[in-house]
């Protein structure tokens, strides 16, 4: 009987290969085939998160920035600088998302870390406090 590979082992392999510069499409195909073959497709979401964590540990940070409007280049540079300071990452990949429901401000999502200065978040906090 084959030994079940732990999620940690899978993610550390993929992250290692990605960091080493291996072709992404090939890795994705490999991972997808493995998950289907071992009937572990339900773990996909967690595997992706774990890969992001692992990459962060290796100095590669994938950051999602959500705001109501398009961000100026200066703001993007400032955000990159902030992430670098906080995580000591060598490579930062910034992805910007526009979401009008946040109303204003900016939300930065890193693996396991978040900075939420959006008006939407503040309103949620206000709603909870008033409920109490």
């Amino acid at each position: 009987m084959a030994i079940r590979l732990s999620r940690r082992k899978i993610t550390s392999y993929i992250a290692g290969e990605l960091a080493a510069g291996k072709e992404t499409t090939l890795l994705i195909n490999q991972l997808a085939a493995f998950l289907i073959d071992s009937r572990r497709t339900k773990e996909l979401e967690l595997v992706v998160r774990d890969i992001e964590y692992e990459l962060k540990n290796q100095g590669i940070v994938l950051a999602r920035v959500t705001s109501a409007f398009d961000l100026a280049t200066a703001t993007q540079t400032a955000i990159t600088h902030l992430i670098k300071e906080h995580t000591n990452a060598q490579t930062i990949e910034l992805r910007q998302f526009i979401d009008p429901t946040v109303l204003g401000g900016v939300k930065i999502d890193l693996p396991g870390l978040q900075m939420d200065t959006t008006i939407g978040h503040r309103l949620t906090t206000l709603r909870t406090n008033l409920k109490k």
């Binding site: 998160r49 992430i83 906080h86 396991g112 870390l113 939420d116 200065t117 978040h121 206000l126 406090n129």
Partner: peptide
């Protein structure tokens, strides 16, 4: 009294 979230904080999902 609203807490101002300064800096990056630990989060989970």
């Amino acid at each position: 009294n609203l807490e101002s979230t300064e800096g990056l904080a630990s989060v989970g999902v």
